[in-house]
């Protein structure tokens, strides 16, 4: 799931200080599950903005809305009657959601309220860790179920590097060296020798990625 981090209030202030009509928009998807951008957080941020505006003697109308998911056209459309009331939308969705809003409503300024950080998993309550970069060519089948692209500081396809120290990564000792993990797991599975060859570099040429699901494409035309 997508993980994001709230922007500091300092940053948000800078984005909105010139405006009078502000909406704070939560997303019911990933950022809700991560307690970063759900209805509750939208409410909290809106309260903070109102207080700040009052202290600054600014006249500001702050609205809070939460969409089921900000990355789906139908949900984004559900606010089309109301967007006219706002000059600015501070979106608490991930970068995808922010852009979807911006594209659909070109007349409103859409600002991110969070910094989207990675796709990751919950390790324990309140601790998330990156696991995937969305490279477009999944290789974890060859690497014991660990992704070297996402989890190696140097994105090495043929590790470990010389900086692997006692199973830890030299870049940050909190990070386990993923190549160490890969070797251990493959040995355990009895297929260590599969790592012997050299893996070719990944093809990073086609960006942005695009995907078509032919069977889901619907054309509804009048008969």
């Amino acid at each position: 799931m997508i993980v994001a981090r709230p922007k500091s209030f300092e940053d948000i202030k800078k984005l909105i200080h010139n405006y009078k009509k502000v909406a704070v928009m939560g997303c019911g998807g990933c950022v809700t599950v991560r307690s970063i951008g759900g209805q509750k957080q939208a409410e909290e941020l809106a309260a903070l903005i109102r207080l700040w505006a009052k202290r600054e003697g600014k006249e500001m109308v702050v609205t809070e809305v939460t969409l089921t998911r900000q990355c789906e056209p139908e949900f984004i459309d559900s606010i089309k009657e109301r967007v006219g009331d706002w000059e600015v939308v501070v979106s608490l969705a991930c970068g995808v959601g922010v852009q979807c809003l911006a594209e659909r409503y070109p007349r409103v300024k859409v600002f991110p309220g969070v910094d989207t950080t990675f796709m990751g998993a919950t390790i324990e309550a309140g601790l998330y860790w990156e696991r995937c970069v969305g490279c477009g060519e999944c290789i974890v089948g060859e690497t014991g179920g660990f992704c070297p692209v996402a989890r190696c500081a140097k994105n090495m396809m043929n590790g470990p590097c010389g900086g692997s120290q006692g199973g830890r990564c030299e870049v940050s000792p909190e990070t386990p060296c993923v190549w160490q993990l890969i070797y251990e797991r493959m040995e355990e599975l009895g297929i260590g020798e599969e790592l012997d060859g050299i893996r070719p570099p990944k093809d990073w040429s086609v960006r942005p990625q695009r995907m078509v699901m032919e069977h889901l494409r619907v054309e509804k035309k009048e008969p």
Binding site: V33, S35, G38, T122, A125
Partner: peptide, 12 residues
């Protein structure tokens, strides 16, 4: 209708 099955309540 609002619950996102986020597990927060389960955890806290």
């Amino acid at each position: 209708e609002l619950c996102a099955a986020c597990l927060t309540c389960v955890r806290v």
